[in-house]
Design a protein around this nucleic acid. Structure first.
Lengths: 233, 233
DNA sequence: CGGTTCGTTGAGGCCCATCAATCTATGTGG
DNA sequence: CCACATAGATTGATGGGCCTCAACGAACCG
C-alpha cells in the first residue's frame, strides 16, 4: 500500500488485519461490476485492472493496477462495485476485510489519511487519463501511458527505462480507448521513430525525454512522494 | 458537502471552520494547475469545473462542479494542483483552510470518513466519464452526461426532468472530448429525436428512460445515498 | 502437430475534426 | 434609441484519424 502516513504501530496493525496472500492466475475476475465486496483486494505482485463495459460489450479500463495498488478502494464505503477487477497476469492478491479497515481508520487517523491519500492519487491518475482519452491522439495516448507506467514501476525519472510489460495490445487498447489494430499500428510508429523498443513482454524507452514531450507527460500528478508537511502522523 | 457521515457536533465544527462565502463572477479561476492551494473551495451556489490542458491548449474537464461539490479535494493532501478550477457561472464559493480540515479529520473519524467518501464518489464519476470518453459515440456521451447532471441536480429518477443548464456548447464539448461544432450537431439530433428540449439555458428531458438507454446510464455509480451500514458514526 | 492466443497487415468507410461563414441574442456607449 | 461589438449557436464543405472486417503470420503449448 502506501505507508508514508503510518506510524510503526499503525503499519503493524494493518499487517495484522490482512488475510494471507493468494496466488491467482491470469484473467480471473476478483470481483464483477454490481457485486457486493466485503474486502479490499490489494495487488502484492503481478498486474491487474479495473474494467467497465457498455451494455453492448465495449470495454474501458479506468485503472491499471500494479503491485501495491488497491483494486477496489470504493468497497471501503460503497456496498456495490461500479466496475470489475481482473488479473492481467498471474498475481498474488492480499485481502483486507472491509470491517477491519473501517475500524482501523476510525481509530487511527494515519490509516484514515492513507485511505484518503490512495483515493486522491487514483483520482489524479484518472484525471490525466481523461485528458488523454478526450483530447490526445493515439500516438500521444500511448506515449503518455508508457511514461506513466515507467514511473509507477519505479524507474528513474529521465533515464532510459526498461521494464516488463505483460499487457497485450488488446489490454492497451482497452486502457487507451482504441482498437487493438490501431494500437498495433501506433506502436509501430513509435518503434520506427526510435521512441520504444518492444517485444517479448519487455518494453524499453530509449528516449524518455522525447517520449514525454510527445505524450505531454509530467510525472508530478503521480505524487510519488507525499508532501513533507503532511507526514506528521 | 456531504453530511451523512457526520454527527451534529462534527457538522458544527466544520461549519465553524469555514470562511465566509464569496460571490465570484463567471469564468474566473479559483486556482490554476501547478499552483499551491492552502484551502478547499466548496461550491455553495452556481457551477464550476476542473479543467486540464495539453501543452498546446486542448482542454478537457475532469469534473463539473455543482453546488455542494469540493473544487479541489486533492489540496487536502497534495501540495500542488493537477488541474485548474474555474467558475462557469457566477458562483458563491466557500473556503475551508486545509490546516483546519486536516486537524478536524485527525480528531473526528466521521470527518475523515466524509473526505474519503467525497474522493471515492469523484472517482466513481470520473470512471464513468472515462468509459464515455473512451468507448461511447458523441450521441451516447451527451445522453449520458445529461442524465448524470439531471440526477446530480436532484431530479427524480425516471420522471421527465427539467433543469437549468448554464453550460455553453463549448463547455459541454470540453467535458465530452468533442468539438463545439459537433456538440451542436449532436444536440440537434437528440432534439429531432425528441430526447431533449433545450434553449435559453434550460434543458428538458421529456423521455428520461430512452435517454438513459441511449447513454447507457445507470445512476447507481453516483452513490447518492450512503449505504446503511456505514452511517454509524 | 493441431489449436489457441497474440501480433501484423491490407482495404475500405465512417465519425468527428477542421476551417470558415452566417445568424442571433445580449449588452454597451454615444 | 440606434450603431456597434461580442459571445454563442448554427450551418456547410472537406478531410483525416481511427474503426471495421478480414486474413495471415508467429509463438507457444498440450
Amino acid at each position: 500500500m502506501q505507508s508514508a502516513f503510518l506510524s510503526k504501530e499503525e503499519r503493524q496493525l494493518l499487517e495484522a488485519a490482512i488475510l494471507p496472500p493468494r496466488v491467482i492466475r491470469a484473467g480471473t475476475d476478483l470481483a464483477r461490476e454490481g457485486e457486493r465486496a466485503d474486502s479490499l483486494f490489494i495487488v502484492a505482485d503481478g498486474w491487474a485492472c479495473r474494467y467497465s463495459t457498455t451494455s453492448d460489450g465495449r470495454r474501458q479500463l479506468p485503472a491499471l493496477l500494479l503491485p501495491g495498488d488497491v483494486g477496489n478502494l470504493d468497497s471501503l464505503l460503497f456496498d456495490r462495485l461500479d466496475y470489475g477487477v481482473r488479473t492481467l497476469t498471474e498475481a498474488t492478491i492480499v485481502t483486507l476485510p472491509r470491517d477491519r479497515a473501517l475500524a482501523l481508520a476510525a481509530q487511527h487517523p494515519g490509516i484514515a489519511r492513507m485511505f484518503t491519500w490512495l483515493a486522491l492519487v487514483e483520482n489524479a491518475i484518472l484525471g490525466k487519463w481523461a485528458l488523454s482519452l478526450g483530447r490526445r491522439s493515439a500516438k500521444e495516448r500511448l506515449a503518455h501511458l508508457l511514461c506513466e507506467l515507467s514511473v509507477r514501476l519505479g524507474n528513474d525519472d529521465e533515464a532510459e527505462s526498461s521494464f516488463d510489460l505483460p499487457l497485450t495490445q488488446e489490454h492497451i487498447a482497452d486502457a487507451l480507448g482504441l482498437t487493438p489494430v490501431h494500437v498495433n499500428r501506433t506502436m509501430q510508429q513509435l518503434r520506427t521513430e526510435g521512441l520504444i523498443v518492444s517485444g517479448n513482454r519487455k518494453m524499453t524507452l530509449p528516449d524518455v525525454v522525447s517520449l514525454r514531450k510527445l505524450g505531454g507527460f509530467d510525472p508530478g500528478y503521480l505524487h510519488i512522494a507525499p508532501p513533507a508537511d503532511t507526514q506528521l502522523c
